[in-house]
Amino acid sequence: MKQGFYTVLENEPLTEQVFRMRLGGDTSPITAPGQFVNIRLAGRFLRRPISVCEWTEGELTIIYKVVGAGTAQMAAMRGGELDLLCGLGNGYDTAPSGASPLLIGGGVGVPPLYGLAKALKREGKDVSVILGFRSAREVFYEKEFAALGARVTVTTEDGSAGVRGFVTDALRNAAPYTYTYSCGPEPMLRAVYGAAATDGQFSFEERMGCGFGACMGCSCRTVTGFKRICREGPVLRREEILWER
């Protein structure tokens, strides 16, 4: 965890509402895929937590959806600097993945899985990915995952691209896999939890105050006690999840 200023190198739309921003600056606080940054915006009191899509030395990429005034303000940025808290949260652990992990992402839950897929490929794993969207207009990063050498299945709720239905429809027909990693809205995570045949890790979203463990705004109950989504999360292991949250 570190605070720093990052230069906006690129900020371009991937779909009507989803943008990709490349930021230049110190990426040494990032230690695992699935971690996030918390972004301060002029005139907004709270920071905006956004997951890291991928990073190299000196550069990181985030992909975000315009959902309110804060993210709209981000989308309008052309260059300039952003104050970030960088390297927040636990991120995914690649150790238990086995030989052929399956990654399942929904909407803006897809980006952190890209950095994860990259890390797993580097470890020589056979990576499959299910990417779920509402319609063809909202699909992004299908080609980027394929370019990593991952097997990609796209699902859309209206059938306008890929498999018609939800990610779980593709999950039920998936080739054998050794482990799952997922990120997306909570109803999707619950469905994946119910349909998955193996252990796995699930990345959760919650309204945050600080993003670094101070305010207790994003707490949840788990089998092993109270956890903060921003600090001990956002990634929880299957065996510790309590759905009463």
């Binding site: 709270l46 105050g209 305010c215 207790m216 994003c218 949840c220």
Partner: peptide, 16 residues
């Protein structure tokens, strides 16, 4: 229960 946080103009509401 969560959500426990809401942003406001120049501040925040918490119900931790």
């Amino acid at each position: 229960p969560t959500p426990r946080i809401a942003e406001c103009p120049s501040g925040m509401i918490n119900a931790v």
